[in-house]
Design a binder for these strands. Structure first.
Lengths: 253, 253
DNA sequence: GATCATAGTCGTCTGCCTGACGATAATCAG
DNA sequence: CTGATTATCGTCAGGCAGACGACTATGATC
């Protein structure tokens, strides 16, 4: 049944990605440097157009793989070694968000373990991990590293802030924090993920009691490691539970 | 700066609304009967095209007002008498979700008090409140009321299910349940909202202790009412608090 | 008017979970 | 061997939720 295309306004639809990881005890996001106007030379979130026969989730997974080599994790399959959690975040469609044309962007949130390759897909200067605080700093009062001082392109600061807030609240009541960890990890490494994402210090003893006492959260693998120094720690894998009940409690302030 | 429109695929962008209310102790959603193909005669969620100069939230608010006369509630302003809570839900963009063309729909969730007019905007047979269970029933095994037995048009059953799930989880940790109540309400009326949305029975004594003991959740107005029968109950208005800490606990199973 | 049904409100008690924190264990660096 | 570091186990007190008893204030019914 043919339809009159002029009967409705035409939009461009893109996906933008908030890709988060924990590196060196701080929460970092993937940023790409724009090579073309508008906002040429500024940092932005990775993203691109949705193809005409492509689902939104597929477009997000494709962009994620192109930028990082990570696979989106299908919950029905066993977790592949380089899998990331991927979920839809929100959609941004202010008429003036892109000066070129009317663009609606479906933002997605990806959570990934720290990648061995610091420079994943493209060339050196166009992709980087940056601490989210520095990406969200609006004032240009930076010393060195001044190329990061400019705010993100488009409305990407808002999108990044929404993604960070989603991650912060979601690790409270789900086992999603394990998405930041490698396949095998220790309780201490998981605790440092919470500490980095929330920006707080947690009591190691209470944290240990909480996570090991929640059924289905962690499965011991039998191995131990001393890669953090100190006494060897048990290794765990993520258990089947996705919802934590009762939740992890984020300390006040 | 002119851009080549053929450089990217053109999409139609719509907003669809999951409008929920509590009527006669059950959770109901607004449904409209489609007057045109595809899915002519079937029930669907209200919605429509986003205009070329219109923000997504504005389009959702416009559709809500057209269908119900409700105003979207701007959190920075005092609550007008006929205000509804409105928030973005999720975006659905499967390439085959609309047989006519490529449509991306940004679904929104609205929570409204029970409306005095059961037939808000249009004519009698095209708009109705229906219990969400009956709208989500997939099998056609209905007795009477068989026009409701057919599944919702497009992917609207999925969208409705997502909206209901959002509402169910959000009243746990926010004061959003008051959006289902009139401006002044009793603790019992608020409890019946929770019971209808969650589909469970709650202990009136523990519920009363919980909501009256949470600072900022309820503000007594001084008045009382006996509209529910029995002993007169205090009237309250929603307080300023939006996040409940600790949350309301949804009983297991 | 007495009685009953209904709904609201106040208390009590017990068990679980959390936060604070002491103590011990197992490694590595010097 | 000593100290630094990290992991792990225990203890204790306070807070909150679930279960439930008791009382209150209305309208309905006889």
């Amino acid at each position: 049944m043919p339809y009159d295309p002029s009967a409705f306004p035409a939009f461009a639809v893109t996906v933008d990605l908030v890709v988060l990881t924990v590196r060196r005890h701080s929460l970092c996001a993937l940023a790409v440097r724009r090579g073309e106007p508008p906002f040429k030379g500024r940092w932005a979130l990775p993203g691109g157009f949705v193809r005409s026969d492509e689902d939104l989730a597929a477009a997000a997974a494709r962009e994620l793989a192109e930028e990082t080599g990570l696979l989106a994790h299908d919950p029905t399959l066993p977790v592949p070694p380089n899998a990331a959690h991927l979920e839809q975040l929100a959609t941004y469609g202010d008429p003036n968000r892109d000066p070129r044309m009317r663009v609606v962007s479906v933002a997605h949130l990806a959570l990934a373990p720290d990648l061995p390759a610091p420079r994943p897909g493209g060339d050196a200067h166009s992709v980087r991990w940056a601490p989210v605080e520095s990406l969200l700093e609006q004032d240009g009062t930076f010393g060195r590293d001044s190329d990061l001082a400019a705010p993100l392109a488009f409305d990407h600061a808002r999108i990044l802030a929404d993604g960070v807030e989603r991650a912060r609240s979601k690790i409270e009541y789900s086992s999603l924090a394990t998405a930041f960890c490698p396949q095998e990890f220790t309780v201490g490494e998981l605790r440092r993920v919470y500490e980095a994402v929330w920006g707080v210090a947690l009591d190691p003893r209470n944290f240990h009691r909480k996570v090991t006492g929640t059924p289905g959260f962690l499965v011991p693998t039998g191995g131990t490691t001393t890669r953090q120094g100190g006494r060897p720690a048990q290794l765990f894998r993520a258990g089947g539970a996705t919802l934590l009940n009762p939740p992890m409690l984020r300390p006040e302030v």
